[in-house]
Every structure is written in structure tokens, then in C-alpha cells.
Design a protein around this nucleic acid. Structure first.
Lengths: 287, 287
DNA sequence: CTCCTTATAGAACGAATATTCTATTTATTG
DNA sequence: CAATAAATAGAATATTCGTTCTATAAGGAG
């Protein structure tokens, strides 16, 4: 073999094939053999898994420094996986970066895939991505920080927190419940287990609190339960999308979240982020 | 100046700063001066604008080949833009790739390393906002569009779609179920109603399909149910965070989603957006 | 039309990097 | 416990790659 540097040859032979498959194959092998790897090679495996971009963009020395091993060990590592050397391994990681970002032309083609056919998956992803992004940014920008603090204070003082969110808002309610459970905050979801909600609310009172999550078109059941809570003088924090919303409590304590929608489906990214904030803030306030 | 190779020095001086700003500045200057550029340099400008990844990942020669000019012309091109050489230009493009894939740890550190005191509600909101944003962007950028299409095809062909997602992923699973219900797509959640999952899965077979959503630390129950599905030869689409994930199906059909976490709580914004894409795309495919 | 400036191409140079080789240390087996 | 095999570290080697230099061509100004 006249040349030991196989990098160029490898890249040339692969440039036509889109190969994130090679990457997957490599990772699969890595996972399979990880347990039986010698200590130094294991260090490298960790580094490779942790920051694949450093493999793609860096050098033998840089990766060796990250993994705290000798450069030659990095080469040995590559050889262990049926590769001719570091360069060949790096080519796999570089091809992956290349295959991920599709060219602009392809994306445009995908969008108006002609023949009036349905929007491509890629276009849908773009749409939902944009909707989530816009919702998040709007929420983050418009959120009234003072009211947010008030809401947290109110919730932190509560004996038990009732969560109300149906239909679209149901996953958010359930996630909030999950968070409260992990943080050992006394709470209860209402409206989801049919028939039991009235009974569950019988114990709710002024020393408790409730989070009501609802967006247009406000579910009838949500409004009913909201009114029942108000009648029992339960302090309420509303998360909703308009000052004219039917679930704004008499205390005026509500947080505005406007979720964008795409193809008729509303994002919930902003509400999720807000709910996480509420949960962690309440937990911290209580210590 | 003893050494003309400024690459190393440049990278060292920039490694702490997040610099897609440099990239933006470069592009701005490129657009401004494009019209007045000599013919060969214009060729290079075209190539650079068309495939920035090739600048980041390739060599002087490879870029020269793409632009159909001499390597030295590429260097001249870089010098024209107040850079010391090709390497410095390449560094800008590489930093961009790096900054796109979460340098998330630093951002979080900046948040609550400001002072030892407990984070304010506002800071928490910022944190969860950033986490969601980073997750969304990373997912959108890294998603393998080809695999996404494959996944949708697989799901669209299924008689019934089984949904598996526990713990953190439970809200996503439930939301997906909600979407499928609205779209009248036959489906079933498994693993959530205790004890019933085995029974529910008895009817699952090769003509069905399953979506498995799981992230580190992969819930034991999820892995068990995943294996049961595989044993029954149910085609599986996995949504997970690593090529080394235990829920990657034998078919290799999986979608990568890396959710950033803040304060120990992982975002689910990216997964939500992806799940919406899957649901609407499957519905559209079936018409 | 000639001179001068700018642009380009190709070759030569120098630096950095990947790879290989050998000595030494660390496990593993009889 | 000894002996062999494997793993590791560090230095030496070879090649690729970025840069610079010089000759040639093209375009403008006087």
C-alpha cells in the first residue's frame, strides 16, 4: 500500500451516497462493544458519544485532549471498529452533518411538491416548528413578570393545588401533575376522571389554589368547573389567551399565553414552558 | 509574523465566544460586495452561499473544485474579506455548526451562576424558554428528512397504531393519542393503564405499527414493552435521544430528538412538534 | 498605443496532522 | 508466581493541506 492516508479516497468513494447509515452502523457497533472496551478506549467512546461534532470538526489531537488520551490511542480506537484510521471515522461523522441539512432547493421542492399533492412531511415539520417557535418567543416577550411572581406566591401558599385543563390543554395539565408529583407538591387533577370531579372539589377551599388552563374554544366543562371553583372561593391562577376569556378569575390573576397554530393544530410549547416555570418556582419557594 | 498559519490562533481566541455572529457579519459583507466582485471570486461566493457545509467540512482544494477555480484563488477570496486566509474563513463556518448544536450547558450556567441565590421566577422562565428554544432548533436542524418520511409511510400503512411513552414522555403520548382521536386514526396507548397493557398488546401484530417515545433515563417498563412489541414483529418507529438508545428497533427506523434540560427538567417542545408532524402527515397520507 | 494596476494560474514551500513503530506498563492465564 | 498476551504512551515518520511566490494575462488610464 503506497499511501497510508485513506481519507481522500474514502471521501471520494462515498460522496454520492447519503450516509447517516454508516453513522448508525458505527454507533450500533459502539454500543454493542462498549462494555468490553479497554479503559482508554472507553474514555474515547464517551467523548465520541458526548460530542460527535468535535469528532467531525476537530483533529486527532483535539479529540485526544478531550478524551484525555494519546493521539495514537484515538487511531487505535478507530481501527478497533474496522476502520482504516481516524480520518475514515471522521468522514463518517462529517457525512452525517452533510446529510442532515438538506439543500435549499430540495426544501423548496418539498414545499410545493407540485400536482397539488399533500404537503410533505418536511414542510409539516417546518410549520409546526415555526408555530412552536413563534409561540415561545411571544410568550417569553409578553409575559408580565410581576403577575408571574404573584401567581407563584399564590400557589406556593396553597395547601393543595387543583389543576384544570381539558381537551387540548389536557397534556399540559397531566404534565403539570407529573411535575408536582416529582416535587412532592400536594395536588389534584380535576375534570379528567369522569364523574369524580365534583366530589374531588368538595374539599377545595380558600386555603387551596387552582391552575386553570384553557384556550379558545373554551371547553364548556372547563368553564363549569372554573365557576364551581370560584364559588368555593378557591384562589385561581388562569393560563389563557385573551383578556376576554371566560376563565379569568375575579382576582384578575391570569397569565397570557397565545399559542400559534398550524394546519388547525395549536402548539403548546409556550404553555409547557410556563407550566414548568410555575412548578419549579413553587417548589423553590417552599424549599 | 513568524507563522502565516493563523488557524490555530484564531480558534483559540474564539473558543469561548458563541460566534454565529461572525458568520452573520461575513454573510452581510459578502452580499454587500457581491456585485463588485471579480468573476472568479464571484464563482466562489456562489459556491460558499450554496453549500456552507462544504466550506466547514471541506478543504481548499475541494472548495476550489466546486467553484471551478484554483486553490490559491480561494485563499485570495478569504483575504478579500479581511481574513488571514482560508483557515480563518473555515473557522467561522465551523463555529457556526458548533453553535447550532447546543452549547447549552454554558447558557444554563450563565443563568444560575449569576449569584448563588435561588433563581427568580423570571430567571426560571428564561431558562425553560431557552431550553425549549434550543431543543426545537436542534430537532428542526438535525432531523433526517428521509427517515421522517419512512416513519410516516410505515405508520400510514398500519392497521392500528400503538403508542408507548411513560413518565416524562407520558404527556406527549397522551397528546398524540388526542390528535389521533381527532383525526379518527385507530390507535391505542399502552403502558399507562396498569395491568392492561399486556392484554392490549395481544392483538398487536406485523400489520400494525407502534410509536415508542423514550429518553434517558429510559424507563424499565418502556424497554420491556418495547421488547414485547419487537417480539410480536410490530413495526416500530422510535423517538429517542441517542443512537445507543435501548428502544431503537431492529429495522433501524428511529428519529433523533435531543431535548435540553434546565434545572433537571427536560423540555418536551421538540417532541411535541415532531409528534404533531407525524399525526398530521399520517392523516394526510391516508386522506 | 504604452504603461501600470489588478486578476489569475500554477508551482514550490512550510507547517500541521495522521499514522506507524517501539518500549513500557498493565491484565490474564497456566 | 511466572509467562504470555494485550494495552498504552511517546517519539518518529510520511503525507496532506494551506499558504506564498512568481509568471502570465487582462483591463484601464494617460
Amino acid at each position: 500500500m503506497p499511501s497510508s492516508r485513506t481519507c481522500a479516497a474514502t471521501r471520494e468513494s462515498q460522496d454520492s451516497a447519503l450516509s447517516s447509515e454508516d453513522y448508525d452502523a458505527f454507533h450500533q457497533q459502539l454500543r454493542a462493544r462498549y462494555a468490553t472496551l479497554p479503559p482508554r478506549l472507553k474514555q474515547i467512546a464517551d467523548a465520541v458519544l458526548a460530542s460527535p461534532d468535535d469528532v467531525a470538526l476537530g483533529t486527532v489531537s483535539s479529540l485526544a485532549a478531550i478524551a484525555r488520551v494519546q493521539p495514537s490511542t484515538v487511531v487505535r480506537f478507530a481501527r478497533t471498529f474496522d476502520l482504516n484510521g481516524f480520518s475514515e471515522m471522521q468522514a463518517i461523522f462529517r457525512d452525517r452533518i452533510r446529510s442532515r441539512s438538506i439543500s435549499y432547493g430540495e426544501r423548496v421542492n418539498a414545499l410545493h411538491a407540485a400536482d397539488g399533492s399533500p404537503a410533505s412531511a418536511s414542510a409539516l415539520l417546518d410549520g409546526f416548528y415555526e408555530a412552536a417557535l413563534a409561540s415561545l418567543q411571544a410568550m417569553h416577550h409578553h409575559m408580565d413578570r410581576t403577575r408571574l411572581d404573584e401567581a407563584i406566591t399564590r400557589l406556593a401558599q396553597a395547601r393543595r393545588i387543583y389543576i384544570l385543563g381539558l381537551r387540548r390543554s389536557m397534556p399540559v395539565a397531566r404534565y403539570l401533575s407529573y411535575l408536582f408529583t416529582k416535587m412532592e407538591i400536594s395536588h389534584r387533577i380535576i375534570g379528567l376522571e369522569s364523574g369524580m370531579e365534583d366530589e374531588a372539589m368538595l374539599s377545595a377551599g380558600p386555603e387551596d389554589a387552582a391552575i386553570v388552563i384553557s384556550f379558545t374554544v373554551y371547553a364548556k366543562r372547563t368553564i363549569e368547573l372554573f365557576r364551581a371553583l370560584e364559588k368555593r372561593h378557591v384562589p385561581i391562577v388562569a393560563v389563557t389567551d385573551s383578556p376576554a376569556s371566560p376563565v379569568i378569575p375575579s382576582s384578575g390573576l391570569w397569565l397570557e399565553v397565545m399559542e400559534a397554530d398550524f394546519m388547525g393544530f395549536r402548539s403548546n410549547a409556550a404553555t409547557m414552558a410556563l407550566v414548568m416555570t410555575l412548578a419549579t418556582a413553587v417548589a423553590e419557594r417552599r424549599e
